[in-house]
Design a protein around this nucleic acid. Structure first.
Length: 580
DNA sequence: GGCCATAGCGCG
DNA sequence: AAAGCGCGCTATGGCC
């Protein structure tokens, strides 16, 4: 059971549609959309079909209407277009509808920034679309949904549709148990569930104690300075860095000035990166390293961040599901996915509540094992410490070398000998990523386990590689083209692993969300391979068990029958900093 | 004044 | 030990 929905001046329109998108009754006008949605949710638990979860759901949720399932037309359109190699085309609902009707396609307009909920974006305003009213808007939602269901039914997992995929990739994919387990349906459902979770997490907020944050800053930087002033500790360090060079006016934030200072001191450096500085013997180095670390903390997550992003004891980032090409999430403002470990002290559960923090251990190598169907790697991934098992199996017990080799296989580093060992012992796994790299170098497309598709090469890339292969290329064109090809190979090599890991994590998130429905506990954070649930202390053990079950469920749904395990490390802690 | 590229580093 | 992948964010510094 599906119900298409559009909002209109507080009320809205609902219309039941079948699985294939055909209407199953007349449009039903409602005066109070949230009340109508809540009632229908209780009665039928339908899948809500709407233009964009991020636009419609926050208001519904605020008014008390929680949705269990959705079909987000914009997110689905993006997945379908990408699967066809059509990356640059606008993917919003209005764009999809315009394409369907053969009308000029509007650009994807950026959502206005600002406080969540403030100023409703006009993206789906019927006036802007030149439409007579919400009835026509509903017609569009129904039509685009039906079209997407047709395209989803036709999106058969056949890798030969992918340009440039060599036989190796095809065999590797099929050897793993056959491409996408259920077409793109699972991906689309998980993407929409993720969008619901994102809105709910933004509404719940991550518990955040401003006084603890302030105490951490004060301990590291000195007391909060007046607006615009530099904290004492930073001013001291900057002065001492300057003194070490005999340059009192040196600005440590300026790489150019710092490079000049080192050059004048007889130590020319390629850059002022920390790892370069660490190899330099000069009295300014430790001061500079300390300055850089504290300066970053102050600039990015200092008192102004606290003022801007924490209110009422909650940090409310704006998540952007599917914001990364690999399907990982991004955030808009607040830097929620880069919170420094030092500040996780400030993430403290409410009285009587606690956090269940669960993160997937060694997710990407496990994903590679499951993707490639490599028996040896799957054996190593069947237990707790994959790298230790790998080391015992093929690297004479040297865990560090085993880890380096496997990371290089997934990311494209050059580790010479280690790769030879890896290739001999785990031919399917290495073959899988190398086929993906070859496809990328040739300009082809690769896909995640659930069918999320990488972007095609840019026109600049095509120009660079064509210039290198053309007749009488100039001397610089050849290395430039080769470099472009290699760069893209590393991207697609990594894409198949990172994006499949994102598939798994997204399905995990959806499974956790479903298991928590009706419970007191709430998802409050999701970071690539990690979920955080805020729950009453008495529920923590049950929540931890649910999260573990959700991980096993995600493994089955995404990878089917595999020996590979996806263990979670689960911590029940009152403070986020105490997890792992 | 705003815009943009670059450098650098936080997270996974 | 560092580097290979994906991001967001800030400061600098050149440009219009």
């Amino acid at each position: 059971m599906r119900v298409a929905v559009v909002g209109a001046e507080g009320g809205g329109l609902l219309q039941a549609v079948a699985e294939d998108g055909s209407p199953q009754g007349p449009p039903q006008p409602v005066r109070d959309l949230a009340a109508a949605v809540a009632e229908r949710e209780r009665a039928d638990r339908p899948r809500w079909v709407w233009a964009a979860t991020a636009e419609l759901y926050p208001g519904l949720l605020r008014a008390g209407a929680r949705a269990d399932r959705a079909h987000d037309l914009g997110l689905t359109e993006a997945i379908l277009l990408a699967a066809d190699g059509r990356w640059g085309e606008p993917r919003s609902f209005p764009a999809a509808w315009a394409r369907l009707r053969g009308l000029p396609v509007p650009d994807d307009t950026a959502r206005p920034s600002g406080a969540p909920g403030a100023g409703q974006p006009a993206l789906f305003d019927h006036d802007l679309l030149g439409l007579p009213g919400p009835a026509e808007l509903l017609e569009g939602v129904v039509a685009v949904h039906a079209d997407q269901q047709r395209r989803l039914a036709g999106a058969v997992p056949r890798s030969e549709r992918v340009q440039g995929v060599g036989a190796g990739a095809r065999e590797a994919a099929e050897g793993a148990g056959g491409g996408w387990p259920g077409g793109l349906g699972l991906l689309v459902a998980a993407e929409s569930a993720g969008a619901l979770a994102a809105v709910e997490m933004a509404a719940a907020g991550l518990p955040w104690r401003p006084e603890v944050h302030d105490a951490v800053l004060t301990e590291l930087l000195g007391p909060r300075p007046r607006a615009g002033a530099v904290p004492q500790r930073l001013a001291d360090l900057a002065a001492r860095v300057g003194a070490a060079f005999g340059l009192p006016r040196l600005n440590p934030d300026s790489p150019a000035q710092v490079l000049r200072a080192f050059a004048n001191a007889g130590t020319p450096l390629p850059s002022t990166r920390s790892h370069v500085l660490r190899g330099v013997d000069h009295p300014a180095v430790p001061l500079l390293l300390a300055y850089k670390e504290l300066s970053r903390l102050h600039a990015t997550y200092g008192w102004s961040w606290l003022d801007a992003w924490v209110a009422g004891g909650r940090f409310r980032p704006e998540y952007v599901p599917g914001g990364v090409v690999s399907g990982r999430w991004a955030t808009r403002g607040g830097g929620a996915l880069q919170i420094p470990h030092a500040l996780r002290r400030a993430v403290v559960a409410d009285p009587g509540w606690t956090f269940v923090v669960a993160d997937a251990s060694q997710l990407e190598p496990r994903v590679l094992a499951a993707l490639s169907g490599d028996d040896g790697l799957a054996r190593a991934a069947a237990g707790g410490d994959l790298y230790a098992a790998l080391a015992a199996d093929a690297f004479g017990g040297d865990r560090a070398r085993a880890k380096t080799a496997l990371l290089a296989a997934m990311y494209g580093g050059d580790v010479g000998q280690l790769m030879t060992v890896l290739r001999r012992r785990f031919p399917a796994a290495v073959g899988y990523v190398e086929a993906a790299a070859r496809t990328g170098e040739e300009g082809g497309l690769v896909r995640s386990r659930l069918g999320r598709t990488c972007p095609p090469p840019s026109t600049a890339w095509l120009a660079a590689t064509e210039a290198a292969g053309g007749l009488g290329p100039d001397a610089e064109a050849v290395p430039r083209g080769r470099r472009a090809a290699r760069d893209r190979g590393r991207f697609t090599r990594n894409f198949v692993v990172q994006a499949s890991a994102a598939d798994w994590a997204l399905v995990l998130l959806a499974a956790v969300r479903r298991r928590l429905a009706g419970e007191a506990g709430q998802l409050v954070f999701f970071q690539h391979d990690e979920v955080v649930v805020h729950c009453p202390r008495d529920d923590a053990d049950r929540v931890a068990a649910e999260v573990r079950d959700a991980a096993a469920e995600s493994g089955r749904l995404v990878f089917g029958d595999t020996a590979v395990r996806f263990p979670l490390s689960v911590a029940v802690v009152d403070c986020y900093a105490d997890a792992k």
